[in-house]
């Protein structure tokens, strides 16, 4: 490992900045407000809103500053490498975050639900059949029968449509990347818009899926083991799609403003990595949550 320093002599160290501390204040508002709000304090929602407004304002300024630094050529080759490492490790941390929820899914469907319906626990839950999905004919949906009957989500058609959407967005994104590398800026921007659009459609389809689940299948966040894992996994994934889509959107806007060059465009690539990560998580969800 010898990324040598000789290439660029000075590593850019930014001037003192008020953004970090300000952002922390915004986050204090968010977490304080949120902890009050979910405990029934109605006024607290305004605190949360103010906090988010604050956070987004600071974020905007912070990004504006770094983009300015980047575009004015202060970021040398070494900084580029730093960003690459940082983005990779960040994505790794996201993998571990999803890992926790996939583990929960695995544990519940292959361990706790069967055990609750097993012979040992018949002492406590004589009527529960430990099958997955928990809503099986002749069984109560939960050991204590506290859950309303629901229908499970099938892979057809919404999730399959969404798979197609995400996979094609991966393709359009790659096309855009190649175009950027070959300096076809117009084509890049066009394909980026397509990617963003596909992402947005995904989010809408998922929104519709949730609507369908709540109103037609009676499948809710509170539908026991199945509902909990289904909504947490797909929900956090959907949220990540949203974030990834916003990242791509901003990158597209920057492209339209003339940022990035054919050989230096880590901002673009970072967002693309993230998008591919979100893609891969989806494939995991599609098989483990919807199919199996």
């Amino acid at each position: 490992m010898s990324t040598s320093a000789t290439a660029t002599p000075n590593y850019y160290v930014p001037q003192p900045s008020r953004h970090p501390a300000f952002m922390a204040v915004g986050l204090l508002l968010v977490i304080f407000g949120a902890s009050q709000w979910i405990n029934g304090a109605d006024w607290a929602k305004w605190v949360v809103a103010a906090g988010f407004l604050w956070v987004f304002t600071v974020m905007f300024q912070w990004f504006r500053d770094s983009i300015g630094e980047s575009e004015s050529g202060q970021y040398g080759h070494r900084i580029d490498i730093s960003y690459r490492w940082a983005m990779s490790w960040f994505i790794f941390s996201e993998v571990m975050f999803f890992g926790a929820f996939f583990t929960a899914l695995w544990w519940m469907r292959s361990h706790s639900v069967p055990a609750l319906g097993g012979v040992d626990n018949a002492l406590l839950w004589p009527d529960f059949k430990g099958v997955w999905p928990t809503m099986a004919p002749g069984s109560t949906a939960s050991p204590a029968n506290i859950i309303e009957p629901f229908q499970t989500m099938t892979p057809f058609w919404l999730p399959t449509i969404n798979t197609a959407l995400l996979l094609s967005s991966g393709v359009t994104l790659t096309v855009a990347h190649h175009a950027l590398r070959e300096n076809h800026r117009g084509r890049t921007i066009a394909f980026m818009w397509m990617t963003v659009l596909l992402g947005a459609t995904f989010v809408c389809v998922q929104g519709y899926e949730y609507f369908h689940a709540y109103h037609e299948l009676n499948l809710k966040l509170s539908s026991g083991a199945y509902g909990s894992t289904f909504f947490m996994l797909t929900g956090f994934h959907g949220f990540h799609v949203l974030v990834g889509m916003l990242m791509l959107l901003f990158i597209t806007i920057r492209l339209m403003k003339g940022h990035f060059t054919a050989d230096r465009h880590f901002g673009f690539e970072g967002a693309a990595w993230y998008w591919h990560f979100v893609d891969v998580v989806w494939l995991g969800l599609y098989t483990l949550v919807y199919w199996l």
């Binding site: 519940m108 706790s112 055990a115 609750l116 509170s222 026991g224 083991a225 909990s228």
Partner: peptide
């Protein structure tokens, strides 16, 4: 949710 609540299938 019932991740940790056996009454709902959690553990």
């Amino acid at each position: 949710t019932t991740f940790f609540n056996p009454a709902g299938g959690g553990d």
